[in-house]
């Protein structure tokens, strides 16, 4: 088997929250944004990351790229652990990992022209390039992402949201990275534009042999683009499997609940018959539940779940649950009864 491009082991991100008005000697609270995530990413593969808001998707992405301090291991294909690198050593890898952001307009500096924005990573990593050459490469990249190269002197506010996202993608691609982390790249776009941007990403991935980490909360979008999907809940991995397998045979009760909530474009479809409602809200990451983090909302929770955190199983379809298995009719019925009551 080939070496994975990125091998993440027990990645944790904990923020220290100093409550307001606290004195400096008070111990800050620990906010566990990402609590021990393991996954691997193979070259040329797309890993989708899904989960509800506040489950640590974006923090995970920012930890991989070194924007927030993290602990654990993230081994790059050449054996270096990205997390333990000093900022100077990390510089070499920054051109290999690029990021596409959620809000297309906010991720572009309004005072810079498109040409300057796209060229910035290039001039940062290759400061010796001649100006004409930089311009040449920027124009070539604009063409590649479907922008007119003659608009190189325009400013971000003169573009539509979809075009701005293309600019963001061009900026990420200009240094020929091996991995692009897309942090909800289409959440802020219209559905028709979403499709364009996603198809552009898929096409570019095939052409350039990129790996993608694709973060989204839209499950159908993730299914469309991903080879494998990882489900996060409160900073923990619930389930990782190939996209087809996960969508067809979800094993974890949380994944089942998520999938059953996907809207189906069919007027005759009765959501009441198949949607499994989840009780309550996401618990606070300041004070996560003991044992399995999902047990407070889980229909299968038993005493064991409160004391023992389930480990991620091995194999192709990895689940972190004491009682994995497909959803049963009785569970649906019971969930519905508690909802009604």
């Amino acid at each position: 088997m080939t070496r994975p491009l990125l091998d993440v082991r027990d990645l944790r991100v904990t923020f220290q929250i100093q409550s307001s008005g606290a004195m400096p000697w008070h111990k800050p609270k620990q906010l566990r944004a990402v609590g021990g995530v393991d996954f691997t990413l193979n070259p040329g593969e797309t890993l989708g990351i899904v989960g509800e808001s506040g489950c640590g998707k974006s923090t995970l992405a920012r930890a991989l790229i070194g924007l927030v301090p993290a602990t654990g291991k993230a081994e790059w294909i050449d054996g270096k652990d990205l997390i333990s690198l000093s900022p100077r050593q990390m510089m070499k890898y920054r051109s290999d990992i690029q990021m596409v952001f959620q809000d297309p307009l906010a991720s572009l500096n309004p005072r810079m022209t498109v040409g300057q924005i796209i060229a910035e990573p290039l001039t940062t990593h290759h400061p010796n390039l001649k100006r004409a050459e930089v311009k040449e490469r920027v124009k070539a990249m604009m063409e590649k992402v479907g922008l007119l190269p003659n608009q190189i002197n325009r400013y971000p506010h003169e573009f539509s949201g979809g075009q701005c996202q293309r600019i963001g993608i061009a900026r990420a691609l200009i240094v020929e990275p091996k991995l692009i982390i897309c942090d909800e790249p289409v959440s802020a776009l219209d559905v028709s534009i979403q499709a364009q941007v996603i198809n552009l990403l898929i096409r570019l991935q095939k052409e350039l042999g990129l790996s993608l980490v694709f973060i989204a909360h839209d499950l159908s979008v993730v299914k469309h683009i991903s080879d494998r999907v990882m489900v996060l809940y409160l900073g923990k991995v619930m389930e990782i499997a190939s996209s087809d397998d996960l969508y067809a045979h979800p094993q974890h009760p949380y994944t089942q609940a998520l999938l059953s909530a996907v809207p189906v474009p069919d007027p005759d479809y009765d959501p009441v018959a198949s949607v499994v409602p989840l009780k309550g809200d996401l618990p606070s990451p300041l004070n996560p539940p003991s044992g399995c983090v999902f047990r407070t909302r889980c229909p299968r929770a038993e005493a064991r779940c409160a004391t023992e955190a389930p480990a991620l199983s091995l194999g192709d379809h990895q689940v972190a649950c004491h009682f994995p298995g497909p959803l049963t009719e009785t569970e649906i019925a019971r969930a519905r009864r508690t909802e009604a009551a």
Partner: peptide, 26 residues
Amino acid sequence: NREFIEAARATGVPGWKIIIRHIVPN
């Protein structure tokens, strides 16, 4: 905390350059 500053940091633009190029003009 705007995303374009984050984008510059993610590519590894040094701090003083971010101040001069991204923050001061804005």
